[in-house]
């Protein structure tokens, strides 16, 4: 509780310093209101309405192609990289309408980090990967950067494995290490939210376990939204779970409810493995 308060005041002072202020009144990081999204003529998201609470792990589950990736990429507006995408409805990040022109997309993505399905470190050294974010946001001081590297790698539970080879190319790391490096790279800019799109699907069980433990640790400081195909994983690590089907949210509730007493027949079928 205490650490949470400290973090809040930290955020507040940080926000007051920046010109593009992030309002912070509710305890929801995201409020999604009637979000629709089309790839050309194909509708991928239909009337999605849900609130995502802060400092919790929210899992998004659902069969392949139901729009999970599309949904979380909308939360940091990465879907806009696809030219044919059209959206309607509202998404509020801490009471800022993310589609509003006045709220810059760079600002949003600074607050909302993303970890992808396939580990995607840059073809640079481990050190350069971690300082990429701070650098593009204007931090040049070598000492500050060094501190950020150590803190981020420690937070991502990777420091001990790589502290002697920071100058080596990140491609030399194992898949699991690369994924933790990508997490460290996100943490380096001290985001508020972490979006994770199937972060463990390309990893072996041990790396998966490490990342799951990490998520538990990180949720003390960050709000985490994680897409997963793995029902057990959702059950193990998440507090809230949203079940997506064909672009719609079928059910969104506390994870324990979703798995023990789902309200919708389709949810029950899916979580019990009867289709998917």
């Amino acid at each position: 509780m205490q650490s949470e308060k400290k973090r809040d005041t930290m955020l507040q002072t940080e926000d007051n310093r920046s010109t593009n202020q992030v309002k912070k009144e509710t305890s929801n990081v995201y409020k999604v209101d009637k979000l629709n999204l089309w790839y050309g003529k194909d509708q991928a998201l239909k009337d999605i309405t849900l609130d995502i609470p802060e400092k919790t792990v929210t899992a998004i589950i659902g069969p392949s192609g139901c729009g999970k990736s599309t949904f979380i990429k909308t939360l940091n507006r990465l879907t806009e990289m696809v030219p044919i995408v059209k959206t309607s409805g509202e998404v509020y990040y801490r009471d800022n309408n993310i589609f509003n022109k006045k709220f810059s997309v760079e600002k949003l993505r600074t607050k909302v980090g993303m970890v992808f399905q396939k580990p995607n470190p840059f073809p640079k050294s481990i050190y350069e990967n971690v300082v990429y974010g701070p650098r593009i946001h204007g931090i040049k001081d070598k000492k500050v950067l060094d501190e950020i590297v150590e803190r981020s790698l420690k937070d991502a539970a990777l420091w001990d494995e790589v502290k002697d080879r920071l100058k080596e190319n990140a491609f030399g790391l194992s898949g699991g290490q690369q994924q933790r490096l990508c997490i460290a790279r996100c943490l380096a800019i001290e985001p508020d939210v972490l979006l994770m799109d199937e972060p463990t699907s390309a990893l072996d069980p041990i790396s998966t376990l490490k990342i799951e433990e990490l998520v538990q640790e990180l949720k003390k400081k960050y709000s985490i939204i994680i897409v997963t195909h793995n029902m057990q994983q959702a059950g193990r690590i998440s507090d809230r779970t949203a079940f997506f089907l064909n672009g719609e949210v079928v059910e969104y509730d506390d994870t324990s409810n979703i798995f023990s007493s789902p309200q919708d027949q389709r949810t029950e079928d899916y979580v019990s493995g009867r289709f998917g």
């Binding site: 990465l78 600074t110 980090g113 993303m114 990429y132 593009i136 946001h137 790279r185």
Partner: peptide
Amino acid sequence: PSEMREASFGMGATKWQTMFR
């Protein structure tokens, strides 16, 4: 690969920064 672009844009980099760096 477009994953590099996504990674860079995802951290709040501008187009020019992504391109140049």
